[in-house]
Design a protein around this nucleic acid. Structure first.
Length: 446
RNA sequence: CGGGGUGUAGCGCAGCUUGGUAGCGCGUCGGUUUUGGGUACCGAAGGUCGUGGGUUCAAAUCCCGCCGCCCCGACCA
């Protein structure tokens, strides 16, 4: 992509309303535009990142055995009356009336809807276990939206729902998602820690929140330092192997890690040695729940068990705040100059900076690089503006592409271009061919 | 919803106290400059002063209502 043909309205000055780094940088880099309080348009750069995050979520969900669907944003109030949540949910739910005076709502979540779909199609133990999910916009009329996409009213969420015959099987489903979430966040370059959560209004007893440690997080967290070092890495995970998943669950839930909601100071001090105790702040990016038959019973999602008795299915729900993750990644990956994207989510694999726009040799070399990068299956953003070099570097630093290729007459004279890491600032002079080969290797497998 | 702010050009702000023909910086546009970490110079465009009403010869400025947005608290992916 040529910058002069792209739409990326960067701001030199910081908009006054943005309080935290991710919000400031998303506005400055031209990723989002505020439409109204807590509601944003996603501009090309931001939308690309959002899709990258979605892609990773989809891939990891598939590996875990979850099946994608897409449910509507607008739901019928009747369904929510059946579950009893139409009245219970409160003003956070946006209620709408259609032209026939029917009560509708903009979905804040989809337990009712998915249960309705499931109950109409499933009739016996042969139809379970099943895990369905979608990535769809939600609306929660937050009292106080803030921090840009971190607490929007409209937000993109992956929400998944499991259906099982009994608690034993439901635990396997729960552990699938535990492991899938660990993999998902790890792939995005995030250190997300599962923390024991309150089951809250949704009910049930198995519940964990995934939090990213960041100073601007809204939750206070207490944890054993050692949980932060846990990593799945290249470990092969067999999602059909319930015992292995349980071991992963045990490994990650053994160290103390809780938010202020569930924190017990006495337990913390008893279980964690003083030097390993960490008190920090965190951003909640995911949430997994087992809620048993809470929705299946009122909504009549019954299946026949092996004995022919009709029993309520056991459910769980599993959410990832996809739009929030975008902000969280920036909170965890930026410096005073701008964003530093982890390679798996970066909007472009590499930035190309032409130091002497209009110089035939430089222009040709940049076009050549563009073609080589594309041939290697990578994407580039080529800053072909007739601008000062400083302005180009500053823009690249702001939008945070992890790698940059710099082309100038001086380097070309020696047959080289410069490959620079945004994260370390370290540069290397390479031939165009070698630089692209190196980039391809860096991105291989992501 | 309670408390505190704020609304003037794309962005950041001044002007308001003490009413008198709307300003600055950045950005944008046209030139000169051909650039190795946000150079420099010349010129230009761009504003219903959030909105409705009131006071006044005259309102960005004073008064009243409404709306938007931001911050602190309870809630949440």
């Amino acid at each position: 992509m040529r910058l002069t043909r792209y739409f990326m309205p960067v701001l030199k000055e910081t908009p006054a309303e943005a309080q935290i780094a991710s919000h400031r940088l998303m506005l400055r880099a031209g990723m989002i535009r505020q439409a109204s309080a807590g509601i944003y348009s996603w501009l090309p750069l931001g939308y690309t990142v959002l899709r990258n995050i979605e892609r990773i979520v989809h891939e990891e969900q598939a590996k875990a055995g979850a099946i994608p669907v897409l449910m509507p944003t607008i739901q019928s109030a009747d369904l929510w009356r059946e579950s009893g949540r139409y009245d219970a949910y409160g003003p956070e739910m946006l209620r709408i009336r259609d032209r026939h005076d029917r009560d509708m709502l903009f979905g804040p979540t989809n337990e009712e809807q998915i249960t309705e779909i499931f109950r109409s199609a499933a009739s016996s133990y042969r139809d379970v276990p099943k895990m369905l999910y979608h990535i769809q916009w939600k609306f929660r009329d937050e009292i106080r939206p803030r921090f840009g996409v971190m607490r929007g009213r409209e937000f993109l969420m992956k929400d998944g729902y499991s259906f099982d015959l009994d608690k034993e099987s439901a635990r396997h489903s729960y552990n699938r998602m535990m492991a899938a979430y660990l993999r998902t966040f790890e792939r995005m370059g995030l250190k997300a820690v599962p923390m024991k959560a309150e089951s809250g209004p949704i009910g049930g007893d198995l519940a964990h929140e995934f939090l990213i440690l960041a100073d601007t997080g809204e939750s206070e967290v207490f944890l054993d330092r050692r949980v932060v070092d846990l990593s799945l890495g290249d470990r092969a995970v067999d999602f059909e192997d319930a015992a292995q998943l349980q071991r992963i669950f045990d490994e990650w839930t053994a160290p103390y890690a809780r938010t202020d909601d569930t924190h017990e100071q006495a337990v913390f001090e008893e279980r964690v040695a003083e030097p390993d105790r960490v008190t920090a702040r965190g951003i909640e990016v995911g949430h997994i729940f087992y809620f048993g038959t809470k929705y299946a019973e009122p909504l009549g999602a019954m299946i026949a068990n092996r004995e022919g008795e009709r029993v309520a299915v056991h459910g769980g729900s599993y959410g990832i705040g996809v739009s929030r993750v975008t902000g969280a990644i920036i909170e965890a990956n930026h410096d005073d100059k701008g964003i530093i994207w982890p390679e798996p989510v970066t909007p472009f694999s590499v930035g190309i900076v032409n130091l002497k726009q209009g110089d035939a040799a430089c222009d040709t070399a940049c076009a050549d690089l563009e073609a080589r990068v594309a041939a290697a299956g990578l994407s580039s953003l080529y800053d072909d503006r007739e601008e000062r070099a400083g302005a180009k570097f500053a823009t690249m630093d702001l939008i945070g592409l992890p790698w940059r290729l710099t082309v100038g007459p001086r380097g070309l004279g020696n047959g080289v271009v410069e490959l620079t890491s945004r994260r370390t600032g370290v540069s290397e002079e390479l031939t165009a061919e070698a630089a692209v080969t190196k980039l391809a290797a860096l991105y291989d497998g992501l």
